[in-house]
Amino acid sequence: MADALTGVSRALREAPPDRVVEAADRAIRSVLGASGTSVFVADYRTNGLWPVLDSRQPEAATQAVQSLVQRCFSSQRSVRDTGVEGRCRLYLPLSVWGERLGVLMVELPGTPSEEVVGRAADIAGEVAMALRAADRETDRYRRARRRERLSMAAELQWELLPGRSVSHGAFHLAGQLEPAYTVGGDHFDWSVDDDRLTVTVLNGDGIGLAAALLTAVTVNAMRNARRSGGGLVEQAELASDTVYYQHRGHRHVATVLLELDCATGRVRAVDAGSPHLMRLRGGTVTRVQLEQQLPLGMFAETRYDLQEFDLDPGDRLFVVSDGVWGADPSGRETYGQRAMARSMRATRLQPPTEAVGTVMRELQAFHADTDLRDDAVVVCLDWHGSASREDG
């Protein structure tokens, strides 16, 4: 088993980045005796999965296959489909550190034993890691993911995102950005370092490319401070000064910066005219009240104060941008007044990766399925408590 996995890993490492899927196919056929494989990647909205080898023709995957692929992707569990002539198709999630990339399908000549399924799952993990690494070196997998052309603003925003989800012994985190192909200034970022999770959500000022450029400067200023060892206050102040001296107060960015102590559930926060924080505890949704300070870049040498609050094990924290909270497509009450809390309560049994999609789908329904008028970001954080931390 170890030798076989090592052989697959070596084949993937030695393959050119744009040929990882073909290398995986050859290695899996050799190691598992498979008669065929296929790799499906999730699109930007994560509401469809598309074959890499034939991404220009999504009809190549039948409706029945798409249903099985989607079930595997949503549940993050292997799915078996026994077909004619005793053949079995095994669908396996492709995930890295909690980020869902897609699904690997392996066609086997007979019903696989549990040992074979376990080996296939380990191989799927190797394939996922290779795809994630290769994604920075080739456009092939990004082309497979996009179902229409991205605007220039959206291209910048997607390049800037850290990922769409991440897991840890103490937490599970996911984010979603809409409208996926035309976003402007709203954004989210995160980093996990030494049992601390830093999360930022931004409401960028303006629309289109100008808003995306403003967000890019802001995010990279905060990253620069964070990677130099600066805390939340230093991150906010460096970003604020950078934006101010670029735009002299004519442009600004409303931001919330959060730092979770993964061992205790204590959250430090800087609220710079921020997006909105909602806590789901049990079946009750309440707003986390923070004192709003000035948005980043409004004035020179603005200084910021830390605030703190606690999460209990099992708490779910949502962070939403104004495009979610303040949506009022028909002049009636905003989405944040009542409908948003209902959608958040409906996610109680879903993981964060599904919960962000539920809130976004309800937002689309609130708009009567017309295009969103503003960028929208939803970030969902579950804190499990330090007892679930797996060291080693």
Rank of each mutant, 00 (worst) to 15 (best):
I28R: 11
H187Y: 15
T242K: 06
R10H: 13
L92W: 01
M298I: 15
Q289F: 10
L213T: 08
R164D: 13
E259K: 08
T6D: 10
G98C: 14
A339P: 00
F171G: 11
W158Y: 13
I28C: 10
R10A: 13
W190A: 10
R164N: 00
S165M: 12
H384D: 05
D261H: 06
A153H: 02
G282E: 14
Q337L: 09
Q76W: 12
P162Q: 13
L349M: 09
Y245K: 15
V379R: 08
S321R: 04
R389A: 09
A23E: 04
T138E: 03
I207Y: 10
S343P: 00
W97A: 15
T242G: 04
A130Q: 00
A327K: 04
T111V: 11
E333K: 14
R279F: 00
V166K: 09
R100P: 03
Q66K: 07
R89F: 00
Q337D: 07
D81S: 03
L372Y: 10
M344G: 01
H250I: 03
Y304L: 07
G110H: 13
L290N: 13
V21E: 03
R29D: 03
E259A: 14
R287N: 05
L104K: 02
G110K: 15
T37I: 01
R146A: 12
A128Q: 08
P295K: 05
A355C: 10
T215A: 05
A11W: 01
R119P: 00
L363I: 07
E354H: 01
V243D: 09
F318Q: 02
G249V: 14
Q307A: 11
T264R: 05
S74N: 09
T200G: 13
V127G: 06
R281C: 05
T218K: 11
